[in-house]
Amino acid sequence: MAIKRHLPEAEDLNLVPVMNLVTILIPFLLMAAEFVSLAVIDSTLPAIGPPVPVEEEPDKKPLNLSLALTHEGVTVLGADAVLNPAGAPPVVEGEKRPPTVPCKSGGRCTNLEDYDWAELTRILALIKDEYPDDENVILVPDSKLKYEVIVKTMDSSREDKSNRGPDGSSRVLFPFVVIAGGALN
């Protein structure tokens, strides 16, 4: 007992140098911190797009899938063999053909969510079933269409999120996008 009384008291750990270090590290890390993460979408000019495979099956017509984007909705072009096997439905003289995927509210789309993206993805998945090797899609947007609608169309045509494989990755539809210059009337 007598020995214990003579032991020196345990000193506190001196944390001040650690504090200094951490305080300097924090502004440095704040500078390099990234709070929004970025991604890119590839696209090319129509003339120099990714090469189209030359060997095509003779009995299958090549798919030139195009999506015409307007304020009324999205029109799928070049896939009539899948969408309308019996031929295109007749159009009343003097009227415009309605878009393949009209706006949810009918008439003119007011915002981004008014376009029926799920339906567009479903139709593109049907086309992909028929043309599994095709990966190109041509976008033909209207001049006044907002850029975000074009980006959303690229998202909808790139992958089918409702159809996930065993590894959790969604089914790839048409990842190579080419943006064409003019809109169809």
Binding site: V36, S37, L38, A39, V40, I41, D42, S43, T44, L45, A47, I48, P141, D142, S143, K144, L145, K146, Y147, E148, I150, V151, I179, G181
Partner: peptide
């Protein structure tokens, strides 16, 4: 995201003329 496609088309066309043909659209 609010820009009309007409502006983007002119920018893409100009870039194409200046030998830039591979576009990468930056998104969140």
């Amino acid at each position: 995201k609010e820009l009309p496609f007409a502006v983007l088309r002119e920018v893409m066309y100009t870039a194409g003329q200046a030998q830039f043909g591979e576009f990468k659209f930056v998104v969140y």
